[in-house]
Design a protein around this nucleic acid. Structure first.
Lengths: 129, 129
DNA sequence: AGATCGATTTACGTAAAAGTCAATTTTTGC
DNA sequence: GCAAAAATTGACTTTTACGTAAATCGATCT
């Protein structure tokens, strides 16, 4: 059986974030762990959601953007105008991400150059001394 | 012949940034445009550098990180310890970027799902009304 | 010269995403 | 059932990357 509950510190250790961060995400409405008294009890679903949030964070999504995506899963908007607007936004986000992916590939290539420059320099110095 | 100089507003229009941003980059030592009196004159090399800076920015590099990469091109550090440290950092950055690229691919796939959810919902509503 | 219009400088302000600190409260280990 | 450890809350602070406002400068047109 999968674990029923995770404590907050358990998750902070697993994901390398602080308790403050997880509480902040709760305040922002991204997660809603259960409570026993005041203590938060994180279910596997909460844990999975945190993973997604952190992934979004790594690629530069704002909290608001992440919240919006989560919302769509919970319940897609009921109004046609809203839906179309959302789809346009999703499309724009995809373009942005494709651009970002290209930026990353270009930068990876550039870092290869930086490394080479370093190796060259190292050889120069190594030889000279 | 390539243009000799660009004005600051010319570049802000081309890249969609404010003059404040370009001056900020100069204050931070990322670019050093020429001067005629107090007015900045941007050469093609400055323009190219700005492109790189903005690319770095898009993928989430901090100003400090961008400055560091630029530095290496201008003159790789002369001390072995420094060089090795830098190479380690470059290696870490590359890992980070590869992770980010994976995050982006996962998120692109997820956005496909979001779009599908929207289409489904649209069909439901469209039929119902 | 005067007017105008962009560019500069200086200083202060701001927003997002947490970090930090201090004062409780809860839970637990025994 | 009580002390120690863990968790919570609220307020305040920090950092990054600019935005904004006000005053000044400088070039150019007429």
């Amino acid at each position: 059986m999968v674990k029923k509950y995770y404590s907050i510190t358990e998750l902070t250790r697993e994901f390398g974030v602080s308790t403050r961060t997880l509480r902040f995400y709760e305040d922002e409405g991204l997660i809603q762990p259960e409570r026993r008294g005041r203590t938060r009890l994180f279910r596997p679903a909460d844990r999975a959601l945190i993973q997604e949030i952190l992934r979004g964070r790594r690629i530069g999504f704002t909290i608001a953007e992440i919240r919006e995506i989560i919302q769509v899963y919970k319940e897609p908007p009921g109004e046609i105008g809203q839906l179309k607007l959302l789809m346009k936004r999703v499309d724009e986000k995809r373009d942005e991400l494709r651009q970002k992916r290209k930026d990353i590939e270009d930068t990876l290539a550039e870092l290869d150059n930086v490394e080479e420059a370093c190796l060259t320099r190292l050889a120069e110095i190594g030889v000279g001394t």
